[in-house]
Design a protein around this nucleic acid. Structure first.
Length: 821
RNA sequence: GCGGGCGUGGUGGAAUGGCAGACACGAUGGUCUUAGGAGCCAUUGCUUCGGCGUGCAGGUUCAAGUCCUGUCGCUCGCACCA
């Protein structure tokens, strides 16, 4: 064998070999336990970045490990291939998005192959391919049938730079998630998915996901934003109902005014023909012109205006003025709020500014009778100024008042969610066309399955006008109604790309099926995904949408599972010089360059060794070289061992101390690596355990009489332990050791419990917790024996320093602590 | 403001409540060498050599990086959600 580790030749050789032999192809096999392993599929930008390398390296360790454990591992890869970058490239460079995307996919596929990831490439899918988006469209039509897809006019988030609308989830701090432009509000007719119908289930079922990080579950919980309260029926003096939503119905006696959102329909009605009409319209216009970011910022100065009308408090029959303000959100609750300045800080500020009365209805436990200097929002208190409710605690009052409101028919307990329906229309070309046609007679009609897919037309122009290129097609728009055959026009919007990625994990179970989106039997065999891996940036958007789709599919009888991802690992970012790698910062390290220079095995080893997967990882060039040196050192170990005679001899009947030491190291590492991969997902410590074992084998080579059979055993174990991390070098050495089958389908080695045992162990002697000595003691000494050993030591009196022992704590294998006084 | 997470050597990071700093990177010295950005050997938390050390202050415990309380700092998510 070569004396030198030629990673480049080795990696190429085995990548070709695996591909030729179809090593990673997988089919349903009921004789083995299935394991569905999935990494979030990438957008085909054209080049892999280090985040991808990390994501897929983590996945590949698990995939190869579970395969060696005998599981039937599905490990597919595909492309989240629709989206704006392709369209922007088209506008900028005049290349059509389709070939641009395909070329990027081809590049990235090749780069992925140089990493040696164990994908079943036969299942590769791309969301932009008609064979895929046909089924995305079919799913839309099913949602439409079930009333889960509907069209409505709404104030929507508009990104002027992308010239399209955005889902609420895609607006980050009032900016476009994609291009960072300030998002505007626009009134448009758009398609929505009724995800709010599933709000409660999406919330409740988080409890069924013990394998998800709490952080992600908390984020989803906050995003769903459930709050319980009462919808209370106020009326205007003229009799118009004005329901309000409140979580503090206990403070209804503290209401001193009412506020409406400027968009509230009653605003125009109540002011029509009054002196207030003009100034109110002026105010509404001014507020609606505010950008999204200003409008929803809590820094915004609270402004308001009386609209000349009054409402009647249904509990107290008090007459309170109706105002409009810029801080009430029309889309949440009922768009109307009761103003309780005494117990809500926003209302307090507003009341101070505009001279509304501030009334205390909750008194803190030790109230000295003083005035409110700020809103008292705490639930810890006693009701005052509340008539018959005086003296109740806040929780008591909440219950009693809600009961009374319901009995009197003036209010009902309701639950509100912060979650809004998912706006899926996009005014762009490079997405799946929404399969709807508009017929004058029949209205909006879903395109029937036998006419799917609605193909993207190619006769379009890409111009930087902001207009969707789809609208430039002379052939796309006009069609016939599938119901009555009359003239009809197509929907010109495409779907949010998050729709395409909300079901791809199901398609992988039955990729390329021409007859259905996925086969139920196959889906039920493979689903749910046992391990999903990706960036935490998808904690809300993608992961919530995918859960929503899966629940709908379940309800439709398309699959058994209700939760798509059993275990979720959210990997940290790859940083350089303390910040995320980005072109603008100029701190990008190219995976291609690293793999060419050091090899895929080194790149993978470094990225797995440098930090636990969930934590951010600081890129370090010299540490990469360190990993490269480790693999060279690993290689030389085998050069040394393979030169020896007698490797195939059976293990000796008795072991020397050196034999025992090396076997303990190797078998101990076997135990630890298995646990680190399967239980803890801590690959850095797994690798360090392998390094320790390698060091132990080197020590053994230097020992008096290293036994060839033990070297052989150690060498095989270490190869198998390292195989999931560095698949190429281990495959090469495995064959050098005489194997003819791939190491990656060999059985994960079992450690021998007996090899872990030690004859003697070092324990620590402490006096009052301070270390005084270390002793070698027989490994299986009991507590009593340990105490006796310590007492019999010549230095025993010295340790006590004249004091008397009041207690002796003996922990076998660890320490003896003498408590003295 | 609300809700998560995290604070350990020069660096990345280890430590089922039981020897803090495993394993590496870097650094220093040595060795081999025509050469060394290779290999090998040694040292590497601080220290006045008594000890002291896991952001800070308390607490629980025979024993705390780990559990509890408070606090400071960093970070992520949500945020005028009534």
């Amino acid at each position: 064998m070569d004396k030198k580790y030629d990673f480049s030749a080795i990696e190429r050789k085995w990548q070709q070999d695996w591909e030729k032999r179809g090593l990673h192809k997988v089919v349903r096999d009921d004789s083995r336990e299935k394991f569905y392993l999935l990494e979030m599929f990438p957008y085909p930008s054209g080049k892999l970045h280090m985040g991808h390398v990390r994501n897929y390296s983590i996945g590949d360790v698990m995939g190869r490990y579970y395969t060696m454990q005998g599981k039937n591992v599905l490990h597919p890869m595909g492309w989240d291939a629709f989206g704006l970058p392709a369209e922007n490239a088209a506008i900028k460079h005049g290349v059509h998005p389709d070939p641009w995307t395909r070329e990027n996919i081809a590049n990235m596929r090749e780069q992925l192959k140089t990493m040696g990831i164990s994908y079943d490439w036969d299942r590769e899918e791309g969301t932009c391919l008609p064979e895929y988006y046909k089924w995305t469209q079919w799913i839309f039509t099913k949602f439409f049938e079930r009333g889960l897809a509907y069209k409505k006019k709404a104030a929507v988030n508009w990104c002027p730079s992308c010239a399209t609308v955005l889902a609420n989830e895609q607006v980050i701090d009032g900016h476009c998630e994609r291009c960072d432009s300030v998002v505007e509000k626009k009134d448009l007719e758009q398609w929505f998915f009724r995800i709010t119908d599933y709000a409660q289930r999406l919330l409740d079922d988080l409890d069924k996901l013990p394998g998800w990080p709490d952080k992600v579950k908390t984020m989803q919980e906050n995003w769903i934003g459930r709050s319980e309260g009462v919808q209370l029926e106020f009326h205007t003096e003229a009799g118009d109902p004005v329901p309000v939503f409140t979580t503090r119905h206990d403070t209804v006696y503290g209401v001193t005014y009412m506020v409406l959102a400027p968009e509230h329909p009653l605003v125009a009605k109540l002011t029509a023909g009054t002196a207030y009409e003009q100034p109110v319209q002026e105010f509404v216009r001014r507020v609606s012109k505010l950008s999204f970011i200003d409008r929803t910022s809590s820094d915004l100065e609270k402004e308001g205006m009386f609209i000349g009308a009054y409402a009647i408090n249904p509990v107290t029959q008090e007459r309170v003025p109706i105002w409009i303000t810029n801080y009430v959100i029309y889309e949440y609750g009922t768009g109307a709020v009761m103003g309780v300045p005494g117990h809500d800080q926003r209302d307090f500020d507003f009341a101070k500014k505009y001279g509304h009365a501030i009334r205390r209805v909750v008194a803190p436990p030790q109230w000295d009778g003083s005035e409110l200097q700020e809103a008292y929002e705490s639930y810890d208190g006693i009701m005052v100024n509340c008539g018959k409710y005086d003296g109740l605690t806040v929780p008591e009052a909440k219950k009693q008042m809600a009961d009374d409101m319901e009995a009197a028919g003036i209010g009902k307990r309701v639950v509100n969610y912060r979650l809004r329906d998912w706006l899926i229309s996009r005014q762009r070309y490079w997405g799946a066309p929404i399969p709807i046609v508009y017929c004058e007679k029949c209205g909006a009609v879903a395109v029937p399955e036998d006419q799917l897919p609605v193909l993207l037309p190619t006769d379009v122009e890409f111009k930087p006008t902001g207009e969707s290129p789809l609208k430039t097609s002379p052939t796309f728009r006009d069609t016939t109604c599938p119901v009555c055959g009359g003239p009809a026009v197509r929907e010109m919007d495409t779907m949010d790309t998050f729709v395409c990625s909300s079901w791809y994990f199901l398609r992988f179970t039955d990729a390329h099926d021409p007859k259905e989106a996925f086969n139920r039997e196959l889906a039920d065999y493979w689903m749910p995904v046992d391990q999903y891996i990706g960036g935490v940036e998808h904690a809300i958007l993608h992961l919530m949408y995918a859960r929503f789709f899966t629940k709908v599919f379940h309800d439709m009888g398309l699959c058994e599972t209700e939760e798509p991802f059993t275990n979720l690992l959210t990997q940290g970012m790859v940083l350089k010089d303390g910040s995320k790698m980005s072109k603008t910062k100029g701190n990008v390290v190219s995976p291609e360059v690293i793999i060419n220079r050091f090899g895929a095995d080194t790149a993978r080893l470094f990225i797995l060794f440098a930090a636990p997967p969930e934590r951010d990882l600081e890129w370090n060039d010299t540490a990469v070289e360190g990993c490269s040196r480790f693999l060279s050192r690993f290689w030389r170990l085998y050069v040394n061992i393979l030169e020896r005679e007698g490797l195939d001899a059976p293990l000796p009947a008795t072991f020397t101390e050196a034999d025992k030491a090396v076997r303990r190291a190797v078998h101990g590492a076997t135990k630890k690596v298995g646990e680190d991969i399967a239980v803890r997902c801590q690959f850095n410590t797994a690798i360090s355990a392998i390094m320790e074992a390698v060091n132990a084998v080197y020590d053994y080579l230097d020992s008096e009489a290293p036994n060839a059979a033990i070297l052989h055993e150690s060498a095989e174990y270490l190869l198998q332990l390292l195989a999931p991390f560095a698949p190429h070098i281990t495959e090469e050495l495995w064959h050098e050791m005489g194997h003819t089958e791939s190491i990656h389908i060999s059985h994960w080695p079992a450690y021998e419990e007996a090899a872990l045992a030690q004859d003697s162990v070092e324990i620590v002697v402490q006096v009052n917790g301070k270390i005084r000595a270390r002793l070698q003691v027989p490994a299986n000494s009991s507590q009593e024996e340990l105490a006796e050993i310590v007492r019999s030591q010549p230095q025993y009196a010295e340790w006590l320093a004249g004091k008397t022992v009041t207690k002796t704590i003996a922990i076998p294998g660890k320490l003896v602590n003498l408590v003295v006084k």
